[in-house]
């Protein structure tokens, strides 16, 4: 870079936003160096860590980053984790695939409440073990009623219980998501492939999205999340299962780190009864399209106009 820092502001080829970001980055780096270089005891690794933290603090909203910036950001996350733990992780910033819109179907007849999906989800997505966070809730309904108020979602007994049936809820990745509308800083949005994601670095933790979600899909990190180091899933995505910090909101991402690799989400893979189906709504030959065409499907709270991409059906 040949420009002096403040000439950037007058550079016609760079818009003002980029200029501010560049300056912010320089400031961040400068302060980081200043902070650590003032401490004679800081080792080289500590200095690097501090610098990475400063850069992370001043980083841009992920949606506005260029591909190069996205790449630098995930490299920084990898390096930071390595400095902190000595272990390596692989963080991806892979974008959406072309002509893909993800959808999900849940077979009420098949689910028997085994909860393997819940367990797989927690492990795959590096969810906080201390608070027992889970994106998926399994509701045990009495036969003859689909009133969720009457359902038990905290059961601890042998399943399937006689006279009951089971339904799972999680983020429905609404096509018209109220949580995205209310976010004051655009830290959450719907990706072109239909996945509703959160930029954990941009979220300010106001929890307005949690108030706005009619499906209890969002979770907040009330304290520093705990994931035992040997249980950390190293295959991560920036918008998905990378490690979170306290004070930010998270949610189901249809396992973005898996689905964008062409795999099924962990819950689908883990389900022993085949009650869960995931696929591309734009592909006329997909299983999910077959279900929508041939089964009597329904969605929950359709009257709210949120257009969930999550259907229920029965055999």
């Amino acid at each position: 870079m040949t420009d002096s820092p403040f000439q950037i502001l007058n550079n016609k080829t760079m818009d003002r936003r980029d200029a501010m970001t560049t300056l912010g980055g320089m400031l961040a780096a400068g302060l980081g160096v200043l902070q650590t270089s003032c401490s004679p005891l800081a080792s080289a690794a500590e200095k690097e860590k501090a610098q990475l933290d400063w850069q992370a603090y001043f980083q841009q909203n992920f949606q506005l980053m260029t591909d190069t910036e996205k790449d630098a950001t995930v490299r920084r996350l990898e390096r930071s984790y390595e400095l902190n733990t000595g272990n390596r992780i692989d963080v991806s910033a892979q974008g959406p695939r072309k002509d893909v819109l993800y959808g999900y179907a849940f077979n009420v007849s098949k689910c028997r409440g085994y909860m393997d999906c819940v367990k797989a989800c927690i492990e795959e997505n590096n969810q906080d073990r201390a608070s027992g966070m889970a994106y998926i809730r399994i509701h045990e309904n009495k036969k003859g009623s689909m009133d969720f108020e009457e359902a038990n979602d905290d059961f601890f007994h042998q399943v399937p219980a006689a006279g009951h049936f089971y339904m799972g809820t999680q983020c429905f990745h609404c096509q018209n998501p109220p949580c995205v509308d209310v976010c004051p800083v655009k830290a959450t949005w719907m990706e072109p492939d239909g996945i509703v994601v959160v930029d954990y670095n941009w979220c300010i933790g106001c929890r307005y999205c949690m108030a706005a979600c009619p499906y209890d899909a969002r979770r907040f990190n009330w304290a520093d999340p705990v994931v035992p180091i040997e249980e950390v899933n190293p295959n991560q995505h920036y918008l998905g299962n990378r490690l979170r910090k306290k004070g930010v909101v998270e949610k189901c991402t249809f396992c973005i780190q898996r689905s964008r690799d062409g795999k099924n989400p962990a819950c689908v893979e883990a389900c022993p009864t085949g009650a869960r189906v995931f696929g591309n709504l734009l592909d006329p030959n997909s299983e999910i399209r077959w279900i929508l065409a041939n089964k009597k499907v329904f969605r929950l709270k359709e009257d709210l106009g949120t257009e969930p991409k999550f259907w229920y059906y029965m055999d």
């Binding site: 003002r16 936003r17 501010m20 970001t21 912010g24 603090y57 909203n61 506005l64 509308d181 209310v182 976010c183 004051p184 800083v185 655009k186 830290a187 941009w202 979220c203 300010i204 933790g205 106001c206 929890r207 307005y208 907040f220 990190n221 306290k246 004070g247 930010v248 909101v249």
Partner: peptide, 23 residues
Amino acid sequence: DVGGPARLWHLLPVVGRINFPRS
């Protein structure tokens, strides 16, 4: 009340990204 008070600068014009008028 917010979880990340240090990140409140995300609300500022130009450097932040305020969701106006939707939010």
